[in-house]
Design a protein around this nucleic acid. Structure first.
Lengths: 66, 66
DNA sequence: TTTAAATGTAAAGCAAACTTTACATTTAAA
DNA sequence: TTTAAATGTAAAGTTTGCTTTACATTTAAA
């Protein structure tokens, strides 16, 4: 699963800490999701999409797992 | 988080087992998601949306947690 | 009305999402 | 060029998504 969080976060001029606060997760979680270390939960994905005013599908690119 | 899986599954004439097979989870997992016992992972949500040819936002209704 | 399919649910265990703490590295402003 | 903010990352622990096994209940077809 790829995502456009880093780009959008920059466009919205938010630090990882700012974004973490908005979506109510830790800064490390934002970093990990952004870097593709793991996928967010569905609720977290919804909150991210809300912050960036876009759909989950616009934020995340699903690629069938291996 | 509410969802329309039961309705859509009926419309597509799929059993919980059928759907489980399609999205590659266990039947119990489909049942639990359908009954709102827990939220699916983001990859599972993507696969569900793909089966029903709709968006994740059309399938799941996000409600801020308590 | 009997039988089979479908659904509901529970327990034990594993895996992944997330936390906190902590520290090292990069970036950018003074 | 020093300093602070921002980012990267790691370890240990908690929570939750999901599995398998197992069985009970509901639904529907014969």
């Amino acid at each position: 699963m790829k995502n456009n969080i880093k780009t959008l976060r920059a466009a919205f001029q938010l630090t990882q800490s700012d974004l973490a606060e908005k979506i109510e997760v830790s800064r490390q979680t934002v970093n990990a999701i952004e870097k593709g270390k793991f996928d967010p939960s569905l609720p977290t994905a919804f909150r991210l999409a809300a912050v960036f005013n876009c759909s989950i599908e616009e934020l995340f690119i699903y690629e069938s797992e291996e």
